[in-house]
Simulated scan of single mutants.
Amino acid sequence: MLTEEQCAEIASALADDDVGKAEVMLYAARYPREALPAKESFTEQERKWATHVRSLRLPADVDLASAMRRLDGAIRSEIADLFERWEAGDDRLAHSLRQLGAHLLEHACSVVERTGLPVAQVPASPNGSGPTVVDDLRDLAGVLERVLTSLQTLARLSSQPGDELAVPTDDPDAMLRRIDRAVDADVGRLYERKDDGDDAVLPVLRRRARHLLELGTCEAGEAGIDVTGVETAVEAAFELPDA
């Protein structure tokens, strides 16, 4: 997801009939971690355009609220039409909604584990025994995977930029690729800092993880999955007060 400032810069280039500049800036904004080396025919001016448009998107640890809005926007852009059709009685969409819900939960679990949040030691049962929170989350994803027989046949992430621009809104593979890119665009630099020993990014990663878990749980619920157990597990993992 691009920021409003990035969109304005690209629109300005188009208004000036500078299609080449707009194309470079759009690519740089959509793929903020992709290099633009001179050996691949990117000129010095094009790299300056790329650097400028990327500077208009602050990293998540600097502007977490905007990062959250980008995540929400990316997910809403994929599910809004599906929810409307589902609520209108189109039961054929259950497969796509459940698959998206499972995918978001897997993303959230991955982020939780990368942050070092001690959820693996938090028991899910009051007496301190039994499965852990992570076990419960993984079990829910496993249930969704068994329900969705086609989950095993998900396509690999495409290596061609823009390959999913024209796909229908009910193409789950394309939706998952776009969600992956939206999540990865903000989190990559945070992971690098964490791996370098910068513990200051842990609260940011944990808030992102909780946000992704909430989104995945909400979508799984919309798809008809009983999420009572996972909601309890999330509350225990993040030590949230009872409602």
Rank of each mutant, 00 (worst) to 15 (best):
V19Q: 11
L144M: 14
D81V: 03
A88P: 03
R98A: 10
R92P: 00
I225R: 08
F83C: 11
T228N: 07
C218L: 10
R57Q: 15
F83G: 03
A11G: 05
L212Y: 00
Q45S: 11
N127P: 00
H52G: 07
T43C: 01
A243L: 13
R208D: 00
L202P: 00
A209T: 03
G128L: 05
V62I: 15
A15M: 10
Y31Q: 04
A11L: 09
S41Y: 12
C218W: 07
R57M: 14
G73Q: 12
H52R: 15
S125Y: 12
F42E: 08
D171E: 12
E9H: 03
Q99T: 14
L213H: 08
P123E: 06
H103S: 10
P131E: 12
L140M: 15
S77N: 14
S66H: 05
D199Y: 05
L36Q: 08
L56C: 10
G130I: 06
S159C: 01
A15T: 11
L137T: 07
R69Y: 05
P172F: 09
G224V: 02
W86H: 11
T217Q: 07
L56P: 08
E40Q: 13
R47H: 05
L104E: 15
V62Q: 14
T43D: 03
A80D: 14
S158F: 04
A80C: 00
A243N: 15
H107L: 13
R177T: 14
R208N: 03
E219G: 00
A15F: 09
D186T: 08
P168T: 04
T153G: 04
P161Y: 11
L64P: 01
Y27C: 08
D135Q: 12
G116N: 05
S158G: 15
D195M: 09
S96K: 00
L104H: 08
L137I: 13
D61G: 00
N127V: 03
A28Y: 03
V24D: 01
R178M: 13
D135K: 11
D195S: 12
L176I: 15
L190G: 02
T43Q: 03
L97D: 04
G221T: 05
D180C: 10
A8H: 06
I225V: 15
R69A: 11
L151R: 14
T3L: 03
A29T: 07
D195V: 04
S110Y: 12
S12R: 15
A155S: 10
A223W: 04
P118W: 02
V62K: 13
Y27R: 14
G229A: 06
W86R: 03
R189K: 03
T43W: 02
L82K: 02
P131K: 10
A13R: 09
